[in-house]
C-alpha cells in the first residue's frame, strides 16, 4: 500500500492539470467575491437615498449576506465552479491509468484492485482537501480585502468540516463515474453535467410537488452545501447535510470498489 500511495501521489503532484484546476478554482473564487462586491456597491449607491433602513438591513433585504472575509470563505464552495473543476481533475487523475493502459502495469506487479483504488481514493481525498482549502482561502482573502475579515465564531469550524465532508461526497461521485466510464472525456462530461442537471431536476421537483425549494434538493450535495454555508442553519439541517455527505461518500465509494474488483483491466 505504501508503494501505491507513493506512486499515486507522485503522479498527482506532477500533473499540470492539478495546478491549472487549482489556479482556476482560486480565480473563480476571487471573481465571485469581486462580482458580489461590485453588485453590492452598485446596489448601495442606488438606494443611498433610503434613509429609513440601516445599510446592513438593506443589504440583507437584497440578498447580500455574510459580507466579510469569514462569510465569503463559508460561501465559497457553494459556487458550482470549484466542484466542477474538482470533477475535471478527478476524472483526469482516475482515468489516466485506464487511458494510458498503465493499470495493467500496476495490477501485473501484484497490486490488488482494492489497494489500487484505495491509493487513488487517498490521492483524490487529498485533491479534494486542496481544492476546498484554496477556494476557501481565496474567498476569505478576497472578502477581507473588499470588506473586512469579520468576526470568527466557533461554529465556523463545524461548518467548514461539514463542507469538507460534502466535498468528499462529490469526490466519491466523481470517482465512481470515472471508474465506471474509464474514459477521461466521458467522465469529465458526466462530472460536469450530472451535479448541475440533478440539482436542476430536484429544484423543479421541489417546486412541482411542494411548491417551495429545498425539500428534496437538500438531500443532494448542492443542497447540503447551501445548508452548510449558512451561518444561521439550525442543528437539524446541519445533521441532515452531514448525513448526505456521509451517505454519498460511503455509497459511491462502495460502488467504485465493486466495479473495480469485478472488471478486468
Amino acid at each position: 500500500m505504501k508503494n501505491l500511495l507513493r506512486f499515486e501521489f507522485r503522479k498527482m503532484f506532477r500533473r499540470s492539470s492539478l495546478y491549472i484546476c487549482l489556479g482556476a478554482a482560486v480565480a473563480t473564487a476571487v471573481l465571485t467575491v469581486f462580482t458580489t462586491y461590485s453588485m453590492y456597491k452598485i446596489f448601495m449607491e442606488d438606494i443611498s437615498t433610503m434613509q429609513s433602513f440601516s445599510s446592513s438591513d438593506l443589504a440583507a433585504l437584497a440578498g447580500f449576506t455574510q459580507l466579510d472575509g469569514w462569510g465569503q470563505m463559508l460561501i465559497a464552495l457553494t459556487s458550482s465552479s470549484p466542484v466542477m473543476l474538482m470533477g475535471i481533475f478527478i476524472a483526469l487523475l482516475v482515468c489516466s491509468d485506464y487511458s494510458s493502459k498503465t493499470a495493467k502495469n500496476i495490477i501485473g506487479r501484484g497490486y490488488s484492485r482494492t489497494g489500487w483504488l484505495s491509493a487513488k481514493l487517498a490521492a483524490v481525498g487529498c485533491a479534494c482537501l486542496l481544492f476546498s482549502a484554496v477556494t476557501m482561502l481565496a474567498g476569505f482573502l478576497s472578502g477581507t480585502i473588499f470588506w473586512e475579515a469579520g468576526e470568527f465564531r466557533g461554529r465556523y469550524i463545524v461548518l467548514i468540516l461539514l463542507q469538507l465532508l460534502i466535498m468528499m461526497g462529490y469526490a466519491a461521485v466523481f470517482v465512481f463515474w470515472s471508474v465506471l466510464l474509464r474514459s477521461s472525456g466521458g467522465a469529465i462530461a458526466l462530472n460536469l453535467v450530472f451535479p448541475t442537471t440533478l440539482s436542476l431536476i430536484l429544484t423543479v421537483l421541489d417546486l412541482l410537488i411542494f411548491e417551495e425549494n429545498g425539500k428534496i434538493t437538500r438531500f443532494w450535495l448542492s443542497g447540503a452545501m447551501q445548508t452548510a454555508a449558512g451561518v444561521s442553519a439550525d442543528g437539524k439541517d446541519l445533521w441532515l447535510a452531514a448525513l448526505a455527505g456521509v451517505l454519498y461518500t460511503v455509497v459511491f465509494t462502495g460502488l467504485s470498489y465493486m466495479i473495480v474488483n469485478k472488471r478486468d483491466v
Binding site: 494510458s100 493502459k101 495493467k104 502495469n105
Partner: peptide, 8 residues
C-alpha cells in the same frame, strides 16, 4: 502485454 502502458 499488448501495447505498452506508458504515461505519454
Amino acid at each position: 502485454v499488448e501495447t505498452p502502458g506508458l504515461y505519454n
